[in-house]
Simulated assay, not measured.
Amino acid sequence: MSRVVLVTGISRYLACRLAGRLSADPGIDRIIGVDTVPPARADLDLLGRTEFVRADIRNPLISRVISQAEVDTVVHASVTATPHGAGGRAPMKELNVIGTMQLLAACQNSGTVRRLVVKSSTAVYGTSPRDPALFTEDMTAKALPRSGYAKDAVEVEGYLRGFTRRRPDVSVTLLRFANFVGPSVDTPLTRYFQLPLVPTVLGFDPRLQLLHESDAVEVLRLASVSDRPGTFNVAADGVLLLSQAIRRAGKIAVPIPAPAVQFVGRSVRRSGMVDFSPEQMQFLNFGRVVSNDRLKQEFGYTPQYSTAAAFSDFLTGRPVRPVLGEPVLDAGGAVLARLLRTTAPPASRTPASVTRIGSSRRVRNG
C-alpha cells in the first residue's frame, strides 16, 4: 500500500479527481499535489486532505519535494494535449518533455520512490490509412507522429523506458488513455461535439473509441495504490462512427475537402472554440481503435462504460444543445408522413385490380 503519494498536474481535471479519491483512502498517510498554479476554488472540496505544493516539475527542485516528503508513489498526470491551456506549443512541449525528464531524474535519485504511474495516450500509435484495425500494446505506429502532443507522448515513453532500465526496482505502470468524455471533463473532443456545425473530412467516417472520465480516474487510482506494472491501453469497449456520434448529438456535419482541413482547423483554433491540434484533426480523418484485453486480464479492470454509453452520458450530463431538436425532427417526420400518404397507392385498390386482371386473364385463357 502506498503511504505518501505525489500527484503532478493537480490543477487539472483527472489529477484533481484522483487526489480526491486517494484522500478518502485511510491507508494513505499523505497526498501531495504539485502544479505551477493552484487548483480552482471550485475543486478545493474535491481535494480533501491533499496538500498543495506550488512547484514546477521542469525545475530540478522537484527532487527536494520528493525527498523531504519521503514519497514512495509518484503519479505523473500533468502531460497535456492542449497548447492553449499550457500557454502555447513551446511551453506545452517543455512541460510534457522537459518536465518528464526532470521528474524521472528526481525519481531515479530518490531512495524512497517504489512506484511510478505515468499517464500517456493512445496517440503514440499515430493515425494513418495504413493502421491496423486494432492496436495492441506491443505494436508501434505505422507513421510516427511528427509534431504536437502525440510526438511529446512518444518522447515521454522513450524517457520512461530508459528509467525502467536504470531503476528496475521501481514498479512502473504506463497507461495509454483513449480520448476522454463525460459529463464534467473538458477536452478538445468534447468541445468539438459542442460546435453547432461539426466539420468533418469529406469522404471519411472514422471509428472513435472513447473512455468515460470515471473509468479513467478509477484506473489511475488502482495503479496508485497497488503494484500493476506494465503498459496498458485504457479504452472502453466498442466504437462509434463519427457520423453516428454527430447524429446522436443532434448536430450537422459539414464535410470539408481534405486540402482545406488544415485551414479550417487553424481557423477554429484561433476562434478559441476548440483547441484542436493538427494531429487531432488527422485523428478525425482516420480514427484509431486499440485493444483493451491486457487491461482486463492483467491489470484487472473492465471499463464500466462502453464507448456508446460514455458518449451518451456526455450528451445527457451537460448542455449539448442539438441543432436538430425535437420540434424540427417532429416537423420533418410529419412532412415525410404526408408525402408517403400522397404518393403511395390506396391499400384497398391494389389487391382488387390485381384480382380483376388475373380473373380476366383466366377468362381469356380459358
Rank of each mutant, 00 (worst) to 15 (best):
F232W: 07
L315H: 12
V4L: 06
P91T: 00
A86P: 08
G366L: 15
G230Q: 03
R288L: 12
F180E: 05
I252C: 09
I31K: 07
F135A: 01
L211D: 02
K142C: 10
A24G: 12
V234S: 09
G20L: 10
S171N: 07
P255W: 04
V34Y: 09
R49C: 01
Q194D: 11
A344S: 15
P39T: 05
A260T: 00
D169R: 08
P26K: 09
R361M: 12
K142F: 04
P199K: 07
R248G: 07
F177P: 13
A178D: 07
S360W: 14
V5I: 14
L103I: 02
R341T: 08
F177C: 11
P188K: 05
S277H: 01
A236L: 09
V71Q: 08
T100P: 10
S67F: 07
T8G: 06
V181R: 11
G332E: 08
V4P: 07
L189F: 13
R114T: 09
S348Q: 12
L46P: 06
L134Q: 04
Y159K: 12
G250R: 12
N179D: 07
T200W: 03
L336T: 12
A19W: 08
G85E: 13
T127G: 05
S359T: 14
I10K: 06
A337I: 00
G20T: 04
A223R: 05
T82K: 13
E94G: 14
Q108Y: 05
F311W: 10
R166V: 04
L160E: 05
V239S: 09
S67Y: 03
L103P: 05
D72Q: 10
S128D: 10
A352V: 13
I31V: 15
L47T: 02
R146G: 11
A150L: 04
Y125F: 15
G325T: 10
L47M: 06
G20F: 09
G87A: 08
A141S: 13
R349I: 10
Q102E: 15
V201G: 01
Q68Y: 12
T231V: 15
T122C: 13
P91S: 02
P351C: 08
P351K: 09
C107T: 01
K93M: 06
V37G: 01
T173Y: 02
K119D: 00
I66H: 08
T136S: 12
A15G: 09
G333V: 05
E51V: 13
A235M: 06
F311S: 09
A249Y: 07
P257Y: 03
V264E: 05
L175C: 07
D215F: 03
R41P: 12
P188F: 11
E279Q: 08
T187A: 06
M101L: 13
D237A: 15
Y301H: 01
I10T: 02
R49L: 03
N285Y: 00
D131P: 03
D293F: 08
S267H: 00
R58E: 06
V74S: 01
F286K: 03
R349Y: 06
A69T: 08
L339C: 10
V328S: 11
K151A: 13
P145I: 00
G325C: 09
